[in-house]
Structures are given as C-alpha cells and as structure tokens.
Design a protein around this nucleic acid. Structure first.
Length: 286
DNA sequence: AACACCCACAACCGCAAAGAG
DNA sequence: TCTCTTTGCGGTTGTGGGTGT
C-alpha cells in the first residue's frame, strides 16, 4: 500500500532504475491510461502509473490526462472570443494560466500558455517592446481588444443572419466567415486615423491566419506609431479607441475591481451577449 | 528534391503548497 | 512538529509538420 493508501505494489527504485519512458506518448500508453482512469478514476498519479503498468512518472500521466486525454478537452483553434478572454484575463491576472483556463471551458492552462507565447509574445517581439511594457499593454487594451470585439460582433451578426436555420452551429463555431471591419467608429471624441481600422493585409485588418485561426494583431497598426524614429505618441494614444469609446485614452483600467462581479459568476458559457454586457458594465462604471 | 527555417504544440523540469503519517 | 509524498503551477525545451528557398 502506498503513502496515500491505494493498494498497489510500491517500488523503491529510482525512475532510471525502473526504466521510465519519456517523450511522446504512444497510442498504447494512451489507451492504458484512459482505460485505467475510466475504471478507477484519476488522482494519486504515482501509484496510478504503477498500477496501470505504465512506465511513466505520475506527473507525466497527470499531464497527459489533463492536457490531452481528458474527454472534455476542447481541441482546435482558439476562437476570437477565447482570444479576447485570454487577453482580458491576462491583463488582469498576468501569467496565472490555470486561473485563466478556468474561464475557458475545455482549454488547458498549457494551451493558453502556448497561445500566449506563440501569438501574443510574437507580437510584442515584432513591436520591439516587452510583453509587460506599458506600450504593449496599451496596444492590447486600446487596439487589440477593441478590434477583437468588433470582429466578434461582425462574426456574430454575420453568422446569425446566415445560420438562422443551422441549429447545430454555435457562435463559437461560426467565426470563420467574419468579414473585415472597415467602418469608422464613434470614438467618444478621440480622433482616429482611418488607416487604423483599414485592412493592412488580406483578409482582415492587421490579422494573421494561423492554422485557420483568425489572430487579430495590433502590430501593423502599432508599427506606424511606435516604430523606431517615431515619437508621435500623442497621435498613437489619441487614435486608440473602442466602438463604445470605452477604451479611449480616458478609459478605465482593466484591473478595476468592478470586474469581480463579472468574473466571480459562473462564466462557463460566455456568449457574445456576455462579452458586450461586460464592456457595457465597465463603460457604465457599475 | 533537399535543406533550412519557423511555428505550434506536447512534454518535461523545478519549485512550492498541500496533505498524510 | 517534522518529514516525506503528492499535486499543481509556471517556465522552458524538444519535436514534428509546414513553408520558403
């Protein structure tokens, strides 16, 4: 019996002596792990690994299960809504990946962390600024997040009109057919350079398409105002605005405590309405 | 066709907190 | 209270596939 009381042979050998496997999991290993957890449940990972006959550490088994084999793991592209949530929650909590993952059902902390590193940090690198710098945070807050909201709204209205009879589709699933936003916005008094909302690349403004994922990027906009030799920060600041004007230069900080009411509730099913209500809530300063 | 490079993702590592004896 | 084990988290690395030359 092991230290946790689970009946199983317990070895005293080191991992090396036991010939622990490392690296990618084979299908057979996956099968064994899933089978064992289906029968006995998860937890007590070290003894689980031993009892299941897997030559893996408990840690490795736990990670494989949580990040890959769990039936409720949501695989596939990070949606625009999820990108928005990640950006907002990261601006609030920083690298608290597991906490952020709680608000993205089916997404793992590892996946979110990878998204941040590969997509978001790449943008910071292109901007030649630190991901934690005020400049980059401003870019996210005033350019990236508003643009995501616009895209989501566009996709939502587009898909709702196109898919009224498609009861199998969800808002999350219908984001692949969004159309570029070229409208001018009511900026709450802040003048905006029309170019900021114009398409810098096909198909959408300042966007990348990575593996089918629409990745909204502030870089092409930011480059014009923060690039080397350009000190026109006033122009940059003044041009930053959201459709509601909330994200203008007088906007509130995302870290305001009012968000607790929103994030404290059950957000397992964030919808477009939730997201817009979220911004409205912040706008009204409730 | 071959090679180099880039990117996304899976997996590992180290550390700290929590829990059990 | 101390020690040992387990669990969970964040940072980092390795690897395979895709793409450009």
């Amino acid at each position: 019996m092991d230290a946790q009381g689970r009946g199983c042979d317990s070895g005293t050998q080191s991992e090396e002596e036991m010939g622990m496997r490392r690296g990618p999991w084979s299908m057979e290993e996956d099968f064994v792990l899933v089978n064992y957890i289906t029968k006995h449940g998860e937890g007590r990972w070290n003894s689980l690994a031993r009892c299941a006959g897997l030559k893996r550490t408990g840690k490795s088994c736990r990670l494989r299960w949580l990040n890959y084999l769990r039936p409720d793991v949501r695989r596939g592209n990070i949606t625009l809504e999820e990108q928005l949530l990640i950006l907002e929650l990261h601006s609030r909590w920083g690298n608290r990946w597991s906490k952020i993952a709680q608000y993205l059902p089916g997404r793992t902390d590892n996946e979110i962390k990878n998204y941040w590193r590969t997509r978001v940090q790449k943008q910071a690198k292109q901007l030649k600024c630190d991901v934690n710098s005020k400049q980059f945070k401003d870019a996210m807050r005033y350019v990236w997040i508003p643009r995501l909201l616009e895209r989501i709204q566009a996709a939502s209205s587009s898909s709702s009109s196109k898919n009224k009879t498609n009861t199998n589709s969800t808002k999350m699933d219908n984001l692949s057919d969004w159309e570029p936003m070229t409208q001018d916005y009511d900026l709450g008094g802040a003048p905006i350079d029309p170019d900021l909302t114009q398409d810098q690349s096909s198909p959408g403004p300042s966007s990348d398409s990575i593996g089918g994922t629409q990745v909204v990027s502030p870089v092409s906009d930011m480059d014009r105002y923060s690039g080397e030799g350009n000190n026109n920060n006033n122009h940059f600041q003044g041009a930053l605005a959201s459709p509601h004007g909330y994200f203008n230069n007088n906007g509130l900080d995302f870290s305001v405590t009012q968000q607790d009411e929103w994030f404290g509730r059950d957000t397992n099913a964030w919808s477009m309405e939730d997201l817009w209500a979220f911004e409205q809530q912040l706008c009204s300063g409730i």
